[in-house]
Design a binder for these strands. Sequence first.
RNA 1: GCCCGGGUGGCGAAAAGGCAGACGCGAAGGACUUAAAAUCCUUUUCCCCUUGCGGGGAGUGCGGGUUCGAUUCCCGCCCCGGGCACCA
Length: 816
Amino acid sequence: MTSSTPNSTAASHASYDPSAVEHKWQERWRADRTNSPDLDHAERPFYQLMMFPYPSAEGLHIGNVFAFTGNDIYGRFQRLLGHTVFEPIGFDAFGIHSENYALKVGIHPMELIPRNIENFRRQLRRVGLMVDWSHELSTTDPAYYKWTQWIFLQLLERGLAYRGKAAVNWCPSCKTVLANEQVVNGACERCGTIVEQRFLEQWFFRITEYAPRLLANLDWIDWSDKTTTAQRNWIGKSEGAEIDFAVAGSDASIRVFTTRPDTIFGATYMVLAPEHPLVDAVASASQRGAVRAYVERATKRDLVARKVGDREKTGVFTGGYAVNPATGERVPVWVADYVLMEYGTGAIMAVPGHDERDLAFARTFGLPIVRVVAGPGEDASTPLTDAYTDNEGGRVVNSPPFDGLATDEAKARIVAWLGERGHAKATVTYRLHDWTISRQRYWGPPIPIIYCDACGMQAVPEKDLPVLLPPIADFRPDDSGISPLARHEEWYRVPCPECGKMARRETDVSDTFLDSAWYFLRYPSTEFDDRPFDADRTKRWLPVNIYIGGHEHAVLHLLYSRFITMVLHDMGYLDFEEPFKRFRAHGLLIRNGAKMSKTKGNVVNPDEYIERWGADTIRLYLMYMGPLEEGGDFRESGISGMKRFLDRLWASAHEMRSDGTPDESVMRKLHRTIRKVGEDTNRLGYNTAIAAMMEYMNTLRSGERVPQRAEVEPLVQLVAPYAPHIAEELWERLGHTGTIFASRWPTFDPALATEDDIELAVQVNGKLRGTVHVARDIAQDQAVAAALGVPGIAKFVTGTPRKVIFVAGRLLNLVV
RNA sequence: GCCCGGGUGGCGAAAAGGCAGACGCGAAGGACUUAAAAUCCUUUUCCCCUUGCGGGGAGUGCGGGUUCGAUUCCCGCCCCGGGCACCA
């Protein structure tokens, strides 16, 4: 092939054969370890992270290819800019998804997962990613989950892991507990089964303790607004007050949380959640029976009906009363399921005049409704048709000492006033709950805890890690709420690390999201067995420079990763507290206007497309569909255009001449293209970057001209991040040795990138009437004269223009 | 209900407040070719006037506004996609 010298004439070169080129370079990269940087000595390290895939049996999804290509282009671009780029990959192979599939096909996950991983590796290599395969990891590898267990122990030591009995979400189909984040509309996010409420002993991580910081850091980390907004909403900060209402005829008091202390004069009744501990105490003898019946019904009602079903208000009067600390009046106490035990204090003061739910309830049960806020144009006696819930613009009424105050001021004054008498204090509440990490399943890292009858709960000593997951045949979960591991005495009976007597292992495994909450810390340090992450490596490579992944992980994975990183930071293991400096979410890839799914049978298998067109063409096509962050619609119709572009690139590199001087106007276009492709690639505007390269190609080959070497060579470099195989091949054929990624991104000359002459748009009264060809730096007077010299423009101008708008280098607007 | 996105040719899409539709697909015509492929050259938002050359008007979901000038900014709606949802 070396006979294809740059000076060979047209038609003497073989045509572009993607499969041969791609195979050759994938082998070359592997043999030369082209993509395995020296992690200990990199001077300008750049950590390019992509969300590791779950290795499903179906193989790589085209959506994965879309996401990984988007990552890879950025990583390759950074490398051409002179960074040492580390682009690792791994497999998120533990979890219910894998286990359920293994149960379905009747193959043990320990057998199934390695097969799937092997298939994924093969497919990933074909995409041509700049992956450093020497740092691959799998969360199911004992060498990995040893450290997942270690992290659990760190949280335990820090007091951030605790065991508690709590109402938890139980999926009767998966037969395990789910975190709140994993319940979608009251159903299991995995299988769609309606989730039940169960009271079980569980392991929790105290993520709520980090809520203020998790929230505060969102203000400065460089993430897309969409993602930070989703996290903010999930953390759900509410500022308000806790207020105590004394129970009439008792020493007890009911504490409520409200964001509207300014409306307390309108609190005409109270509501307790059915699970509230004071329900029984407040209930009067005559109402107790009815109350108990209601509570029983409510707690049995599945969560879907209660949370997302019809919003019909139900409830029962307890027969008891409490005293409104602002008015001194007795208000009835009700029990109703529209108040949730898990939020705030599980009790509310109901203000039907200014809360829609309270109003609906009050109307259903005939409770008094009082106006205590008047909006603009309203007064204390304006009848309420709907609940007036506006916070701004309202003034407090019917609230004797505070009448006339704006709501914001009233809030502060009323809390202070009640506070002086010990009835209230300002407080902040979050919607975020502690993270339930226990899973009563098999396919996960065993939680490293031992229960001893003599010594109590013991952490497994670090030297005994990992607690290996035993290869058991009957790993099917049952309805007992206890992990299948509990059926294996030979595994769970173990000597107590403290006293040596026989004790029992914890049989729950941890949530998959814990596996993925720290994998980015492990990548640079995969070769170390004696530490989770090496201090020097971590210092050099972390935090991650850019992380690109799916928006579906905006609250789950990303929040947990941030939390674990913060904890490790606080314990002195890390010197940063945010793991991902920059995060961008790619959009969703759909097909012919519809979401891809197995049931619809419209899932695209990347293999056949790569086979048919080549990886470079598919990479270009996926990126050309639209902005990366907006996703795209996979329609095969557009692929041919990308192949045509690469064919023309191939032809140009072979037909070009090295003996002439490059064309000046082509060189101008080249420099503008270098600038645009660089800028666009940097902001993930891959679609417009590709368009710019195509435009340049059109210029280059316009009218069947034969391009010059100096016109073609830089284009090969611009294309390299997008279509790495063909770029490598052409770079070699152009006479270079070594990978093109060791070369430097072409620099653009600003002087060459600007034209001397421009087409100036001329408007009359804002309407385009023509253009004039003038010097770039023409003065306004001359521009006007030039414009009026064009009959097609002049005919719209009668007399002298009243006003002239001149935007140098762009446009002239004559107002007549 | 609330919070994010988004509505632009036949299709995917571009446009620091400054020539709307770059670039690609598709379609039509042409050059080259015995022919085809490839390549290259035209045309391709809609409507009207004109035999033609050419000229005019409308147009970025709808209705207003700001501006010399709006796809872009503001106000009020409609529709589509996604997320959250009895969160006090």
